[in-house]
Design a protein around this nucleic acid. Structure first.
Length: 414
RNA sequence: GCGGAUGUAGCUCAGUUGGUUAGAGCGCUAGACUGUGACUCUGGAGGUCGCGGGUUCGAUCCCCGUCAUUCGCCCCA
């Protein structure tokens, strides 16, 4: 087939797909609003350094997955691979430090040059929640609660578990990282190829290796809890208490490590086994050093992102399409009056189907295919009486009624 | 980026151990039914068998390449 194809890893959202997509987005937006998170948006691209500096030069996303290009002005521009960095940049650009806590919801397309798989695309969409300026553990709890509430509402909580861990503050994390590098460095020859790379890029990841040889070494590796300072330990305990108090169940996963450099303290993922290797549906954590990295005043933050496509694959209870009422003119003389009636009813917020052509049989078939609730037939006979034939397509019954009574009659059809 | 599988009509799939015009169901469309849908019946349209090259008298089938999808790894939403 030489038909034009979409670029690899991109997909069209046809109406049927879009309905699921929109349901996920709208559900998230509504729930976020209830928790006090207002919607905002930032540009789809940023200066490359916004992502490079915050996510870490050695992270996979920055080192091999960014869609970067030089603008005509010679600046390096990157299509956003995630939302957090852009929102934090916006927080700084707009001088919003007096608006804390800055609680926002956002959604939109993201771009990562990865090998496509089910639930993994090069252009995909995320919902995103950020709470900037709150150092309190209560913020962590709230942010996670929003996510839990959304997953519940989408009907996917049953197939998800919340995994949670702490990465500690910068001091704790650096101490632990150094200890791991020392330990694994001494056994470098026994490490898998992947883990040799991890040693310099993100040694914490070695703990999560699926390689059997690595796992043997991991058994005797330094334990994170030994390196957490008191503050970090207490902070995490407070987060867990908060979740307990809300009845949000979680699984402590000491090997949960996020791939981006900016995370501190709380890290969490809502994971499912229903999507193969792509288990994370909503994931995030605290990023207390990020805004400073971008050149802002030290400001704590916590947030998460969720993959809309992944959630759409799992979501239940997608609302049905609105059932229209079909208006069917009978005979040429009825076409204009029918069109006018359709216009008036549509202006009264009623969903009307009016075909451009076809005899009564064709139009009835079309009405049926569109799952119309009822059909309004208007011919010369009815026109003369200011009436119409209202046919209940579910019951298969019909009756002649005055056009002036149509509004009421349609109300009752619901 | 690495390894495996797959690619025939709009959709789901048959098929040919290489041989004249490549099939089914669903869908679409026309009619039976020129003021009445869902059921039924009868026609019709739609495919250079993913794309390119090779082997062969001959390829949708065999070989190579390529593109896309998919599963796993890496990583992530």
């Amino acid at each position: 087939m030489s038909l034009p194809q979409p670029v690899r890893g991109t997909h069209d959202l046809l109406p049927e797909d879009f309905r699921r997509h929109a349901h996920v987005r709208d559900t998230a937006r509504d729930i976020a609003a209830r928790f006090g998170y207002a919607e905002m948006a930032t540009p789809i691209f940023e200066f490359t350094e916004v992502f490079a500096r915050t996510m870490g030069e050695t992270s996979d996303v920055v080192s091999k997955e960014m869609y970067s290009f030089d603008s005509r002005g010679g600046e390096s521009i990157t299509l956003r691979p995630e939302y957090t960095a852009g929102i934090c940049r916006s927080f700084i650009s707009n001088g919003l430090q007096q608006n804390v806590p800055f609680k926002v919801f956002a959604n939109g397309p993201m771009f990562r040059y990865e090998r496509p798989q089910k639930g993994r695309q090069r252009q995909f969409h995320q919902i995103d929640l950020e709470c900037i300026g709150s150092p309190e553990a209560k913020a962590d709890v709230e942010v996670i609660a929003v996510a839990a509430s959304i997953l519940n509402s989408l009907g996917v909580m049953g197939s998800c578990t919340l995994q949670i861990n702490t990465l500690g503050d910068a001091e704790s994390r650096q101490a632990y990282r150094a200890a791991l590098v020392e330990y694994f460095g001494a056994h470098e020859e026994q490490l898998s190829e992947d883990s040799k790379n991890r040693l310099t890029r993100n040694p914490l990841r070695i703990l999560d290796s699926k390689d059997k040889g690595d796992q043997v070494l991991v058994k005797d590796a330094p334990v994170f809890t030994d390196y957490l300072n008191d503050f970090s330990t207490e902070f995490f305990a407070e987060v867990l208490e908060g979740l307990d108090a809300l009845g949000i169940s979680y699984e402590l996963n000491r090997r949960l490590v996020r791939g981006l450099d900016y995370y501190t303290h709380t890290a969490f993922e809502f994971v499912t086994t229903a999507l193969g290797a792509q288990g994370a549906v909503i994931a995030g954590g605290r990023y207390d050093g990020l805004i400073e990295t971008l050149g802002g005043k030290p400001t704590p933050g916590i947030g998460w992102a969720g993959g809309i496509e992944r959630l759409a694959l799992l979501a239940e209870n997608i609302p049905d399409v609105i059932r229209p009422i079909a208006i069917i003119p009978v005979g040429d003389a009825a076409v204009q009056p029918a069109t006018k009636l359709a216009y008036e009813l549509r202006n009264q917020r009623i969903s009307i189907e009016l075909a451009f052509k076809g005899n009564v049989g064709k139009r009835m078939k079309r009405a049926n295919k569109l799952n119309a609730r009822a059909a309004i037939l208007i011919g010369e006979d009815e026109l003369a009486k200011n009436a119409c034939m209202l046919r209940d397509l579910d019951a298969g019954t019909q009756e002649e009624i005055q056009i002036s009574d149509l509004g009421k009659a349609l109300e009752q059809l619901k």
